[in-house]
Structure formats: structure tokens, C-alpha cells
Design a binder for these strands. Structure first.
Lengths: 199, 199
DNA sequence: GGTAAAATACTCAAAAACAGGTATTGATTC
DNA sequence: GAATCAATACCTGTTTTTGAGTATTTTACC
């Protein structure tokens, strides 16, 4: 029997998912955890073939667990179940040997199918091009511009950003002006609010 | 039998939740929807006693559905199942006659209990003070200051805020400085990021 | 009635952001 | 090879924000 550990801080989701998976008699749930810390602990005492891993936790990120598993060389196969397709995280996950990156907007049947694929050794990555396909405002921004939005969002001034990226203050301000123009916004407040949602 | 409609764009969650609810033979799931539009459509053709409503949808917000139900005067009881305690949304939900606002970080048993309470006419609102219990920075700000943060967050300049609140530009700027000092921040970007999370 | 906090308004000054330009380089694409 | 775009950098302004003060009035509470 394929055993699974479910790590998700949303207890309702974790529990009802466990029920669903056991119902089909294809998997057995060996453990349910709700924090990064307890997941890592459970991994060291419990054997399982697949770890169903959420991205968001109160005490950290799912990718931290993946990093731990990777470094420790544990034989468990990781399936990340995330809310959205977050490209940088997906790339990072692939680097860390994660076997699948699925979004929660997926039917139970599709999840079961994907897990069977993972179990038989395949990788299942739902890259945005294949899954959603909706053109977003984010794509209006170049990678560099997106990077700068992230730093602005953290509260850094143009000067601080320039220092951090080894650029001229002028360059950063040009980028910021281009960003505002592209997104049709007029100040930092609007940009940060937007970034909190979409970036 | 208490019938339920589940509206959640995360199909896995909606489906496994449905399974869990029907397992206990206390509820019957009359419908599952994944968008605001299809939820509103279903509400008009299907009778149910409780609507389990997510907050986030690809085509809108759960609160939009609540608004529709409120205006149309439908007799269905709404239970919002959100990711986090978002105070403004909770207040808005209460205004719209929503019966419960629960966070997903809740066990299945607690959810069932809360739904039983709602079914027997009670309201279940998990206000942050009761659930988390951590003294928040929000309380450092006076009502007027909180109001101004909301406007800053929307991208208004001090002048625009002054015009909207019939105040002197000086006053708004004083408030803004006091806000930043109280929260120990140094610019608007940090403030907006904070407001997105906590206000 | 007294006190404390909140809300209001002002001044002066520096820092940061915003708006409109221009220009060079490198990479990509047609 | 030309054209386009991304990334870099600079200049000249204006507007907005932030910092550090002071001061009056209103509100709330004991």
C-alpha cells in the first residue's frame, strides 16, 4: 500500500483530503501535520512513499521542508500542492527534486491520477502555460522590473535598491517610472497593493 | 436533512470536503461550484439550507455572492470559509447577514460543530481577539489614523485624502507621520504592505 | 472639574518620489 | 542589417513624503 503524509496548515483541508484518499483504498495516510517543524519531525520517525506538501505554513514555507528532505537525502517523493502557480517557487522546487507541483484548483480525480504518476516515477509539473493560460499584467513587466517591484514592496527606497543591486539610483528610478507607466499607476502605494495580490 | 452548497474554486478541497460532510450523514451536498457566477446561478435553481462559501474566486470574491444573497433576500444561511481573518471583510460579511466566518485552519470536527450551531440559528464569528489572541499593532492606531491608512493604501495622496475628508493637507500629513512613528516604519510602501495583511 | 488622548493645523527643511526628457549598450528577432 | 526591447544612466524639474517641532480644540474618561 502506498503510504502518504499530508502536510497542510488548513486542518479542514488536510483532514478531508485524508478521508478522500483513504476512501479509494489506493493510499494510506500515515500522518497529518500542520507546521513545518512537525512535518520535519514526522518525516524522521515515519516512513511513507509520498509527502503531500502545502506551500504556506504559519512557521515557514513548504519549500523549506523540500530543502530539508533534499539535503537529508530522504527517499520520500514530494508532491507540492499549492494555491497558485508561483513560477520562481516551481523552479526552485524542481531543483530540489520535488516530483510534482500541483495547484489546488484541480479535481480529486486529477489529483489521484497525478499521484499515481508520481508513484510510478514520473514528474508532474503544471507549468502556467499548460494550466491557466490567462494573460496577466505581471507579464507586462520585464524580469528586472519584477525584481525591483519586489524590493519596493519590502519598503526599500530607490537608493537602497540601487545599492543592493549595484546600480545607479537613476536606473532604479527609471525602472520605477517605467513600471508605473506600464501598469497605469501613479504611486508606490498602488504598486505595493497590486504586488501583494499578483506578485 | 440539512442540504449544503459548497462554493470553492479549489476543486480538491471542495470535493473532499463534500465527501467528509456526507460521511457523517448529517448533511447532504446539493451542489458544488467553483466560480462566483456559477454559484449565483446554482443558488437560483437549487434549494439548500447552508452555503459554504470560500472568499477567493477567479472571477470575484465570496463577499460578492453574500451581497447578492442579501439583496435578493434568499433564505439560505451563509458560512464563509476563508484562509485568514481579514477584519474588514469580516465586518462587511456581518453587515450582509452572513451567519459564520470561519478560517480554514480549523479541524473537521470544529467545522461540523460550527455548522450545527449555524443551523440552529447561532452566529459564529471567529474574531481575531478570540482566535489568535496576539496583541496587534492595529490597536496602536486611533480610528482616524486607521481610516487614513485605508485611504493611503488605495493610492490616494495626502492632498486627495484631505479633500475627501474635508481636512487640511497639514492634518493628513501629521496623521501619516504619527502612523509611521507608531508602527516604526519609514515609508508608504511598508505601510501598505502591513495594511494589506492586518487592516 | 481636571486630565489625557485624539484630532486638528501650522512652519521649516530635507529626502524621496514622480514626470518628462535623452542616450548608450547588448540581445533578440525579423 | 534593421528594428525592437531590455537594461543601464543621466539631466531638469515638480510634487509628495518624511522629520522635527509647536499649538489649539475637542472628546473621553475618572
Amino acid at each position: 500500500m502506498n503510504t502518504i503524509i499530508i502536510a497542510d496548515d488548513h486542518k479542514i483541508f488536510a483532514e478531508s483530503l485524508a478521508g478522500m484518499l483513504e476512501e479509494n483504498n489506493l493510499f494510506k495516510v500515515a500522518g497529518i501535520t500542520h507546521t513545518v517543524a512537525s512535518t520535519i519531525e514526522t518525516l524522521q520517525t515515519t516512513k511513507a512513499s509520498i509527502l503531500l506538501l502545502d506551500y504556506h505554513f504559519p512557521d515557514g514555507k513548504g519549500i523549506d521542508v523540500a530543502e530539508f528532505v533534499h539535503k537529508a537525502g530522504l527517499p520520500i517523493k514530494i508532491v507540492i500542492l499549492s494555491m497558485e502557480n508561483d513560477l520562481p517557487t516551481m523552479r526552485q522546487a524542481e531543483q530540489l527534486g520535488v516530483r510534482a507541483y500541483l495547484i489546488k484548483n484541480l479535481s480529486s480525480a486529477e489529483l489521484l491520477e497525478a499521484m499515481q504518476q508520481v508513484f510510478s516515477g514520473e514528474k508532474v509539473f503544471m507549468w502556467p502555460e499548460q494550466s491557466a493560460g490567462q494573460a496577466t499584467e505581471v507579464q507586462l513587466l520585464s524580469p528586472r522590473e519584477q525584481e525591483i517591484v519586489q524590493l519596493v514592496r519590502q519598503g526599500l527606497t530607490s537608493q537602497e535598491i540601487a545599492a543592493q543591486l549595484f546600480l545607479s539610483n537613476y536606473t532604479v528610478e527609471t525602472h520605477r517610472r517605467n513600471i508605473l507607466r506600464k501598469l497605469n499607476m501613479k504611486n508606490t502605494a498602488m504598486l505595493v497593493q497590486w504586488a501583494e495580490k499578483f506578485l
